[in-house]
Amino acid sequence: MIRDITLGQYIPGKSFIHRLDPRVKIIITFVYIVFIFVASNFEGLLTMSVLILGILLLSGVPLSQYFKSLKAILFVVIFTSVLNLFYGSGNVLWSWGGIQITSGGVANAVFVTIRIISLILFSSVLTFTTSPTELTDALERIMKPLKLLHVKVHEIAMMMTIALRFVPTLLEETDKIMSAQKARGADMESGGLMQRIRALIPILIPLFVSSFRRAYDLAMAMECRCYHGGEGRTKMKVLHATSLDAVAVVVSMVVCAAVVACNLYFPAVLH
């Protein structure tokens, strides 16, 4: 069922990861994601993976939740790894016509798969352990310097809060509308590609209409409570970095340094 999609859902808890300052978490996540791509060989990538595994366990979120978020992108993982099978050189393992699979291709495929899985798991940690409010609060703070360039930082953060807030609501709504159209005999499980695309119309149109209705209602409710943007607005919860954050930063720096070292000492997998 559509409600089973867990990507981007907060799971409350009190673990070490939950208690980190969200600003630190966002920056570390960003740096890690960059380093997942910087790592050019198995040694470096495995260092990252071990760290990610440790963080998953530390987060106290049931591992089944992480598997669920992987399931949502299973297709992408399979697609890219199969595509990568056919690239690369080395010993030919299997060939048919002009197509051949080489040892280099297999290494590529495995490498890319680990990369994508790490990427998804890592970003899941951020969204599972950080509430949407904390997340946007932190983003607003991180982006504050952009105000000098006349970027509307507060408005962007508010839009993100609202968007995140409405993800579960919209999923629920989609579920309801799908049920209602199925009750009228809509067929969404069979037919060719065009037929299936056409079958989405009875779901997408009501969904759009209700999103607009919700947007108007929300705007009205915000104005009724005198919302007027970020000017002079104070925070109920002011973010503070603690010694926990220092630990996280130091560990991260060590791991990143290790990845760079691996890159220098071992040959790269992808060419």
Binding site: K176, I177, Q181, R184, G185, D187, P202, P206
Partner: peptide, 26 residues
């Protein structure tokens, strides 16, 4: 046949008649 709560949220066709005809059409 099943009429859900707030069923007006499921309307999508261009005209009223077409929308009513969606079920029998299926």
């Amino acid at each position: 046949g099943m009429v859900f709560q707030y069923p007006e949220h499921q309307l999508f066709e261009e005209t009223v008649l077409k929308d009513i005809a969606f079920g029998p059409g299926n």
